[in-house]
Each structure stands twice: as C-alpha cells, then as structure tokens.
C-alpha cells in the first residue's frame, strides 16, 4: 500500500538532491577556469580527462542522466495530476499572496533550466564525448578552448546568467522542500535545513554566475 502522491514527491526529492550533489562536483570543476592563463587550460583539461576516464564517475554519470530524466518525467506527471485535482479555476484569484513566488513557479523555473541543459549538453557534453577535439600540450582533449570560445559571446553569457538565476530560485525552494518531503520535522533540524539551503543556493548560484562573466572579461 503506497501513497502515490507522496511516492512521486519522494522521487522528486531524491533525484533533486542527487542533482544538488552533482552541482557541487560541477562547480568544483568550473572553479579551475578562474586560474591564471595557461594554468587554467591545463588544469581544466586535466580535470575533464580525469572525470571522463573514471569508472566511478561513469556510474555517477548514468545516475545523473537518469536523475535528470526522472526529475523531469515526475514533474510532468505531478503537474498533470495537480491540474486534475484543482478542477475549475477561481474567477478572481489572489491566493498567491500567501506563498513565495518560487514555490508556485517551480515548473516554470524547471522548464528554463531544462531548456538551458539541452543547449549546455549540446555545446559541451556532446562536443567532448562524440566529436574529436584537438589535444592540448599534455595530450588531453582541449575542452577549455571550447568553453572560452562560448563565453566570448555576450549573448551566451547572458543566457547562462538567466538560467543560473532560474536555477537559484529553483534551488531555494527545492532544497528545503526536499527536506520536508523526506520528513525533517523537528524545528531545530528544519532551521538547519533552511540555513543549509540558503548557503548552498548562494554558493552554487553565485559560483556558477561569476565564472562566465570572469572568463568573458579576462580571457575571451
């Protein structure tokens, strides 16, 4: 006997938290772009190669693909069921005054993030995995040059920043909401989850937003 609604929310929370964990690994990689000149190139390409050739990372990558697809599919199912549950719309609706904007717009924010992910995968992931990139001096695939070339375009940076703002709002609600779904109910621990959520969101969002701007103005 399972509660279907809660079961779906558990999947959303589980996949969401895994994606949160992945963002940390991703940010650690991107931070290397902030290194000075040639060092950034070698370090970044070395890191990319390290991840690409690692069996543990390979397994994590498949969990990652599954998590992205699972998170999106469950979101679609949940949204559809919620529409059915809501029934007829109110003629005059001011319910929004009782909750935060991001908590009501997770679907919209998620759609922006997903659209960004499609472009992101095409531009970097696909390039690295399925095309023959030139090698750098150390013999690693030169992903660094691809990244810098992308960040050279101002519109690319703007798109990136918009997506990261959407990600920030998504995380702000998502992180805490996942804690709730997992059943963190004691006020003391809830406070910790909230503070951890804010800190995590702040670091991830600012971190990811800073890098393309820095690269655009200093390296490209």
């Amino acid at each position: 006997m399972k509660s279907a609604t809660h079961q779906r929310k558990l999947w959303m929370a589980g996949t969401g938290l895994f994606l949160c964990f992945f963002l940390v690994i991703h940010l650690l990689g991107n931070i290397q772009l902030l290194l000075p000149g040639e060092e950034a190139k070698q370090q970044f390409n070395w890191y990319s190669h390290l991840l690409a050739g690692n069996i543990i990372i390979e397994v994590i990558a498949y969990v990652l693909y599954a998590s992205i697809i699972g998170h999106v599919v469950y979101a679609l199912v949940v949204t559809r069921k919620n529409k059915l549950a809501s029934g007829k719309k109110y003629k005059y609706d001011r319910r929004s005054s009782a909750s935060t904007w991001q908590s009501r717009n997770m679907g919209l924010l998620g759609t922006i993030i997903f659209a960004f992910l499609v472009i992101h995968f095409k531009d970097f992931w696909y390039q690295y995995k399925f095309t023959t990139l030139p090698l750098d001096e150390k013999g690693n695939k030169d992903l660094y040059t691809v990244v810098v070339a992308a960040y050279k375009e101002w519109w690319y940076v703007v798109m990136y920043e918009v997506a990261m703002i959407a990600l920030g709002f998504h995380l702000l609600h998502g992180f805490f909401s996942a804690g709730r779904t997992l059943g963190v109910y004691h006020p003391k621990y809830i406070r910790w989850v909230k503070v951890a959520g804010w800190a995590y969101t702040g670091i991830i969002t600012i971190g990811f937003m800073l890098i393309p701007v820095y690269v655009h103005f200093t390296k490209a």
């Binding site: 006997m1 399972k2 509660s3 279907a4 609604t5 809660h6 779906r8 929310k9 949940v78 069921k81 919620n82 059915l84 549950a85 809501s86 319910r95 009782a98 909750s99 935060t100 908590s103 009501r104 997770m106 609600h173 805490f176 909401s177 709730r180 779904t181």
Partner: peptide, 17 residues
C-alpha cells in the same frame, strides 16, 4: 494518505500557503 490520494487531492509542493 491513500484515502487522501483516492479522493483526488493533489501533491503537496510545500508552498506553505
């Protein structure tokens, strides 16, 4: 919770409204 689902109520998104 099963009964809540079969009555056709939606998912909790923790909006806290």
């Amino acid at each position: 919770m099963n009964q809540m689902d079969s009555e056709g109520f939606g998912h909790c998104t923790n909006t806290e409204a």
